[in-house]
Amino acid sequence: MTKIDTSRPEQVLPTPSHTVGPFYGYALPFLGGEEIAPFGHPDTITVHGYGLDGAGRPLPDALVEVWGPHPDGTVPQADGSIRRDPATGGYLGRNGVEFTGWGRSQTDTDGHWYARTLRPGARGGNAPYLSVCVFARGLLVHLFTRIYLPGDEASLAADPLLTRVGDRRDTLIAAEEGPGTYRFDIRLQGEGETVFLEFQ
């Protein structure tokens, strides 16, 4: 039954997830999807890495969504991530000044993805992090993870999630490659498997 009767709570059951499949490439990626930071913003960081499967092969058909707060920790409320051009029906790109906090990156044939966004601020008792949602052919339900940034060891040591995952915490902390540039690989399976999350 696909008409849900909301007056009967026992009928309000989740729509199952399915794989994004191999052919979303002409539909979901959009102009400037990876360029989340407003132009020239001093808190801009680049996060990038490779998506890998259980045999260590690159994922050439994965989609990585990144969602994070402003540098002061507040949650972005601006729309306009995928602004459309009413004249041509194409994409306009972001407006260059507003920060929507969300973007989408498609892995290339090497399995590489990147996003340029603003350094996230801390919220609550958590160390600062970017939320990440991974989709791919072969992945029947998307996977959530987080990108924590190195540097503030005290706040990382106090983070509730990082303290829970023990020696797997390194898979959640990006490696600094240079000023404002961080490497974060996503391993779906096997040696060094990324910690994935389930929200309840």
């Binding site: 259980g54 992945l139 029947l140 999630l161 829970r164 399976q189």
Partner: peptide
């Protein structure tokens, strides 16, 4: 080859 083998962290 594309599913995690470790349980998800709730």
């Amino acid at each position: 080859f594309r599913h995690p083998k470790q349980p998800l962290v709730a």
